[in-house]
Design a protein around this nucleic acid. Structure first.
Lengths: 293, 293
DNA sequence: GTCATAAACTTGTATTACAACTTTGGTTGC
DNA sequence: GCAACCAAAGTTGTAATACAAGTTTATGAC
């Protein structure tokens, strides 16, 4: 008896969102444009308001790109959804950072292993280009006052690992790395707020990455995976060292300080799609009024 | 002049959604209830319609649980967002299934490795309980006509791997497994539509899982990881065999043997929130009308 | 004190109207 | 003929209002 009236308790906006999701996933491809809201509303037999809510749900899920004046277009899947999930997870429980690093090691090892087995010339060249950018940023950071050097370094670092993932030929791996890059970097900044990395460590990192790339190019699977494992281990140790004096198992156990620091930094989790996420700080209306219940 | 009027091109619903996201992630914890839409609309200085669209975006992203009559509550992060992403990815490119299996192997090995290193009594008992349910379902499936046995087996299988992930102490791993379970099972069923697993393969699967658990209990890290790696490898081979006659050229292949690990990959973990997303088939309205442009 | 009922509160949906932006088409000027 | 320009249509964004349908809370009877 599935016949009764479950639609009374099921808001039609949700139902329409599900049906639209099925349609988009089933019969449309990235880049295609949806019909107008008015059309969709008529087709699904709901008002434009309800239709807009359904479309907004899909947009929030990352399936659609909506903009004023233009009809919505189907988004290409990317790591941004995963990135947002990780960001919210790390905010609610900063200790998960180390869990994430563990997972990342596992995936990075998988990535270099596959890349060493069958890396294309293009992939290796992309990794080499990223490595060059890392080198340049490390130089700039060591020589003197270039506050943006560290950011450039991390960006190049992420590019390097994404190039490797691309070389692995595993698309899921690519999306995962793309999604992990930003949350990891934000957590990193949150732990080192204000702290500067030493130029030496950057140079060491460049050396380690170069070694990994050499192993990949020469097809040295074991060498590549071992080197990668060591690299991530070192990174974890650094981050753990930066965290431990701060709080964590210090005894209070609340972790509120970490939460605040994470919250202050991690506003750009929303990736490229919603670039304006950074511009808006906390609502003045909210801070002026009383807290939520 | 760089007139500061970029907010004209930025829909306030998006802006409000971002600000609300920051507030939820920054100052609220799962289970808390948001103010009413009217309150929020007033606080953010927008109409209720706009506020509702913002809330719907957060709901689509999995941050909020909305229901009629009740104020929205903050959701606990779980694997459902990841699951939806994988589902959309696998639909747009089914070949990614093998990429996903590769990733899964990596994570499963990581999971058993950590579990073997420091598994709690409770975690091992949970895995044992799941193994018992697997055994019971395999018996029921072998003895005769119990169509639900296979489903129960897959559920128990998924529970086993999730128990292992839980024993690993790595929350990210748990979420990832939770998110992978449903898409993998969906893809599995899509490739074997109607096909039944043999009772023998279920028994083999039970044996393999029992061996893994024994290694974990005794702290045999290498044994556990090797056994797990083999289990996933077999699963991949089975699924690949089941796919090739179907999507690729000829070969009868209808009687393909689906051995133990095929069953182990098809895991499930009732993700709760999005159960309706799968249940709804294509829109009747749409299929009745003309296709989208 | 417990239970039932009613009132208040809250979300869901529709309708209408208009503002702001994008695309498209034609028109003009060269 | 071709390019630039401009107007009109198309489309999304926002608001105000009204009511339906569910949930929570307060009230009152027992």
């Amino acid at each position: 008896m599935t016949m009764p009236a479950p639609d009374t308790s099921r808001p039609s906006a949700i139902s329409v969102a599900d049906r639209l999701t099925q349609h988009v996933l089933g019969t449309m491809t990235p880049g295609m444009r949806l019909p107008s809201e008015a059309d969709l509303a008529e087709r699904y037999g709901v008002s434009r308001v309800t239709m807009r809510e359904a479309v907004k749900m899909l947009a929030g899920r990352g399936l659609l790109d909506v903009a004023r004046g233009r009809r919505a277009i189907v988004r290409q899947p990317d790591g941004s959804v995963f990135a947002e999930f990780l960001t919210s997870l790390l905010r609610s429980d900063p200790k998960c950072l180390f869990d994430l690093i563990q997972v990342r090691r596992s995936l990075e090892v998988q990535s270099v292993t596959l890349a060493a087995r069958h890396a294309s010339r293009a992939g290796i060249m992309a990794a080499e280009a990223a490595l060059d950018r890392m080198r340049a940023a490390a130089e700039a950071g060591r020589s003197g006052a270039d506050p943006a050097a560290q950011t450039r370094f991390h960006q190049a670092d992420a590019d390097f690992h994404e190039a490797l993932a691309l070389s692995s030929g595993n698309r899921v791996l690519s999306y995962l790395f793309e999604g992990m890059a930003l949350p990891l970097r934000e957590s990193f900044y949150a732990s080192h707020r204000g702290q500067q990395l030493r130029g030496l460590s950057l140079a060491d990192s460049v050396t380690a990455h170069a070694h990994i790339l050499a192993c990949v190019s020469s097809g040295d699977v074991k060498g590549a995976s071992d080197a990668m494992s060591k690299l991530i281990d070192d990174a974890e140790r650094d981050i753990r060292a930066a965290y431990s004096p701060e709080s964590l198992d210090g005894g209070d156990g609340k972790g509120d300080r970490l939460r605040r620091s994470a919250a202050s930094v991690a506003s750009s989790a929303a990736d490229g799609r919603s670039d304006g996420a950074l511009s808006n700080t906390a609502s003045p209306t909210l801070s002026a009024n009383k807290r939520f219940p």
